[in-house]
Design a protein around this nucleic acid. Sequence first.
DNA 1: CTGTAAGTTCAGTATAAACAGAAAGTACAG
DNA 2: CTGTACTTTCTGTTTATACTGAACTTACAG
Lengths: 180, 180
Amino acid sequence: MTLSKAASEFIVHWGEMGSRWGVNRTVAQVHALLYLSAGPLTAEEIAETLAVARSNVSTSLHELQNWQLVRATHLLGDRRDFFSTSHDVWQLFFTVLEQRVEREIEPTIAALGRLAVEARAEKRTDVTARIASMHAFLQEMHGWYQQMSKLPPSTLRSLVSLGSSITKWLPIRRKAKGEK
Amino acid sequence: MTLSKAASEFIVHWGEMGSRWGVNRTVAQVHALLYLSAGPLTAEEIAETLAVARSNVSTSLHELQNWQLVRATHLLGDRRDFFSTSHDVWQLFFTVLEQRVEREIEPTIAALGRLAVEARAEKRTDVTARIASMHAFLQEMHGWYQQMSKLPPSTLRSLVSLGSSITKWLPIRRKAKGEK
DNA sequence: CTGTAAGTTCAGTATAAACAGAAAGTACAG
DNA sequence: CTGTACTTTCTGTTTATACTGAACTTACAG
């Protein structure tokens, strides 16, 4: 399979973006290719198109499957695995978000909770306060994320398209005297 | 300066988190140290505390200053630079967000805009649609981000603590017949 | 069984990034 | 000026990770 110029540039750019966000370049490129592809592809096709080793594609596809971003499908009378990803960008976004929250944010919150207790035991008041602030912040954001993730996608999209005009609907909140 | 166990673990964890999100480990550790520190520190102190080369600290501090996360201050009669960062987690979060949006998201949106035009010219209808969807998604999120970033911090924090209950305040929205 | 096509795992190599240490630069005190 | 304290820049080395190619495994057709 040969790529159009635009497709190829898209894939290259996606690979670079991946690198900047801690995602393996090949993994990101494989995902980008599947995203652009009209139908499922075999590992062989992916390796040829991206000009990387078959083994590298195998590993990357496993990684993407672990991230729940790619799934394998089969054709009657064909032993090969066919791989595909969602074309729904919102869904992709939430999958990645969900995975990163689960793998990185939640363990970090747990760790900070422990560290705050530890710091307090060490009587380092300032350090304790700093760790606790970070912990509280992550917990608050996480709580918000969890509530948002439970809303139906259509509501979520409405909230995003409303933007800051959402504040118009809220009960009026004014700063009390002396409140900073 | 010697670190308490909790402080040291916090810094190590922060360094690891940095790595996973495409931030240099030392850069993340220096920032974590400054975050925990009650007052400004010299590069020398930072290098000793983290046990890394002075030159590495110098580079990392420059990087952090480019990211607007750290600033240098001075003491009368002291030629050394003293470095510090905000202790306000929300502010730190928004600074990082702002920088990453500026450096990565905005250029990506621009690139996708160009690629969508290019794909259309190549008459690759499916690829065009896929690139355009990604472009539209990023634009929508970016628009939302921009509006949110203009709200006063207190309003923003209220929105986060409201969570999904915000939907209660919205004009009732029901799915029209046949709407999916 | 045997051969072939597909998929996976593994060991070694290559690459890019991080890092240290040395060298150079800068600012100022005396 | 000269020496010292501090900072930056540069070069070579180290390290971590990505990646390849080969060996190995599995499944199945003939």
